[in-house]
């Protein structure tokens, strides 16, 4: 990890990794979106053994929302886990890119959290009969969204004022307490939300839905990675511009004469 403490080395890695993550993510996530929206599949895909998404026994056609809602929820939570890890790297090792990576993760993390809340609400109306319910899972996810907004405001303010990034890092670590709460909320409290369907090594979801779901998770994760790299590159470039302009301003400043006492009469 410390190899990439040098921004030059990090940028040489990011320059080829960004398009690789972006285009592979776009193909996988885009493919699942098209698959999830297709009521029927072309004959050549059926010949390859691919079947259109069947309606679920209870949820009907709305089961298709699974392929976007679950990746959004996982990446919303994964984003904050990334902020917490970066914050720990900043506080423990003073890694120079840790504060930047945490700031770069915050925006896509927030967008995925909002996408999870909105798609979940849309899914709730036909399946639960309500857009919103103040239960443990939905409320803790809403709290995550406010944590992201708070983190972004704090990180941007400290960067603008030239204050220490450790303030935002501490907030990033403390906010991580919400992640296990979101994860266990459906077990600890009664909820309209279903209990965990996918646990370590086990799944209650039929492979017909599970396989495209996993492809969607992979695709959106790759896109998430590409967006984080893009935002890190932008932040590094902004810092380099600022440093160069500051250095130039110092060089151009005339050096004041030393009082004139040593000058010959």
């Amino acid at each position: 990890m410390h190899i990439y403490a040098n921004p030059k080395r990090f940028l040489s890695l990011a320059s080829w990794l960004t398009p690789l993550l972006f285009f592979s993510g776009l193909v996988l996530a885009g493919g699942v979106i098209v698959y999830g929206l297709a009521p029927e599949l072309p004959a050549w895909l059926v010949a390859l053994g691919l079947q259109p998404v069947p309606p679920d026994r209870l949820m009907g056609e709305t089961v298709r929302i699974l392929f976007i809602h679950v990746p959004a929820a996982w990446l919303g939570m994964g984003g904050w886990t990334g902020i917490a890890l970066s914050s720990a790297a900043l506080l423990i090792w003073k890694h120079p890119l840790a504060a930047l990576s945490a700031r770069a993760i915050a925006v896509p993390g927030l967008i995925f959290t909002i996408a999870c809340l909105v798609t979940g609400s849309i899914w709730g109306r036909p399946t639960w009969g309500t857009w919103w319910v103040w239960d443990g899972r939905l409320t803790s996810m809403l709290v995550l969204m406010f944590l992201y907004i708070g983190y972004l405001a704090l990180a941007q303010a400290t960067a603008r004022e030239g204050a220490s990034p450790t303030i935002a890092a501490i907030f990033g670590l403390v906010g991580a307490i919400n992640i296990p709460i979101i994860n266990r909320s459906v077990v600890w409290w009664n909820s309209l939300h279903q209990p965990p369907s996918i646990t370590a090594g086990k799944s209650a979801i039929d492979p017909t839905f599970l396989v495209p779901l996993m492809v969607a998770v992979l695709g959106f994760s790759l896109l998430f990675g590409a967006i984080v790299l893009m935002r890190m590159r932008a932040l590094i470039a902004e810092q380099q511009v600022e440093a160069r302009l500051r250095r130039r301003a110092l060089e151009d400043e005339p050096i004041p004469a030393a009082g004139g006492a040593m000058e010959p009469a």
């Binding site: 996530a29 925006v107 590159r233 932008a234 470039a237 511009v241």
Partner: peptide, 28 residues
Amino acid sequence: YVLAAYAVMVLAMAAMIAWSWLAMRRAE
């Protein structure tokens, strides 16, 4: 409902990707 949920996700993704890419290009 399916179409509305997918539209939200696609628009959010497109906006976020465009914003991040433009910010990166402008800064570099």
